[in-house]
Amino acid sequence: MSSASPLRVVVLISGSGSNLQALIDGQKAGELPIEIAAVISNRPGVKGLERATNAGIEAITLDHKGFASREAFDSALAQRIDGFEPQLVVLAGFMRILTPDFAQHYLGRMLNIHPSLLPKYQGLNTHQRALDAGDSEHGVTVHFVTAELDGGPAAIQAVVPVLKEDDASTLASRVQAQEHVIYPMAVKWFAEGTLRMHNNAAVLKGEPLPASGYQVRTNNV
């Protein structure tokens, strides 16, 4: 993408929006060729909405509690998203299980970030599960979204060491620092046209990536 035609992005959040802030910072610095057209939260009053407003981005609350079913919420959400005509939908701490129809509607143009080295530890409490398993390494994965929960093809992973003194909080903090590095990388690749999903695989610069995606290793302690 050229600077004259930035990629239109809608970001979905449920909480503080720290990954959203990393994308906002990259956009403002001119490092990401994107335009965040809107930020939508399924929870009212969260800090991520404040971050969007402070950046001059339209901030929308669509409270899932106001809908009779998951399908009804996802249908309304898709209508709001499509009103902005985005080329990419970014899930940044969006804590909803998506319906298959919703996932299919955005197949190949929706990214999520998950705090584990997928396919390990799909779902919640990933940091404690890694510690309980005695893992020596942990990390975070950016992946394309499919109907399978946390099961879409991985684009990039950041691997961090697990330290002897780690608890879930300290490990989560170090993993989150890497989230703010690799999510903008993946979004930039997509915006530049070098990252795509094809035949249920992540493809970078025309080459299918391994199941773990492109891996970044860090000695970040």
Rank of each mutant, 00 (worst) to 15 (best):
P100D: 06
I97M: 01
K28Y: 11
E207F: 12
L117Q: 11
E207H: 14
S173G: 14
L7Q: 12
K28F: 11
A103I: 06
G151D: 12
G213A: 07
V11Q: 05
K120R: 15
G123E: 05
L91Q: 00
L77M: 01
E35M: 12
H105S: 13
V203P: 12
R109Y: 10
G123P: 05
R43K: 15
S41G: 09
S16P: 09
A37C: 08
I13F: 07
E179H: 11
V203M: 11
D167Y: 03
L12S: 11
P100T: 07
E148P: 06
G123F: 03
D74L: 06
L131Q: 01
P210N: 10
S136H: 12
L195W: 09
D150V: 09
P184E: 14
G206T: 12
N219P: 08
F84M: 10
L91W: 00
F67L: 10
R51M: 13
D150C: 01
R174D: 03
A76G: 02
V181G: 01
R174G: 06
F73S: 10
S16Q: 14
A22H: 07
D132Y: 03
N125A: 13
L171W: 07
V181I: 10
A133S: 07
A158H: 13
L118K: 11
E85V: 06
L163E: 09
H180T: 08
Y106L: 03
Q79I: 14
T194D: 08
G151K: 05
A92L: 04
L20N: 02
Q128E: 15
A37K: 10
A59F: 00
K205N: 15
M185E: 10
E58T: 10
S169W: 05
K188Y: 08
L88K: 04
A92C: 06
L163H: 03
S75G: 11
T141A: 11
N54G: 10
I81V: 07
P44E: 02
P119K: 05
K164Y: 12
A133H: 06
G213S: 13
S3A: 08
S116Q: 04
V89C: 08
A202N: 04
Q87M: 10
L209Y: 11
L163S: 04
R70S: 14
M110E: 01
I156G: 09
A133W: 14
L32D: 06
G93Q: 09
Y121W: 04
A55W: 13
R129A: 14
A154E: 02
A172C: 11
E85I: 08
L77W: 01
D167T: 00
S16N: 15
Q215A: 14
L49H: 00
L171M: 12
G206L: 14
T141W: 07
A202H: 09
V175H: 08
I36E: 03
G56W: 11
I36Y: 02
H143F: 12
S18L: 03
P115A: 02
N200E: 15
V181P: 08
K47A: 15
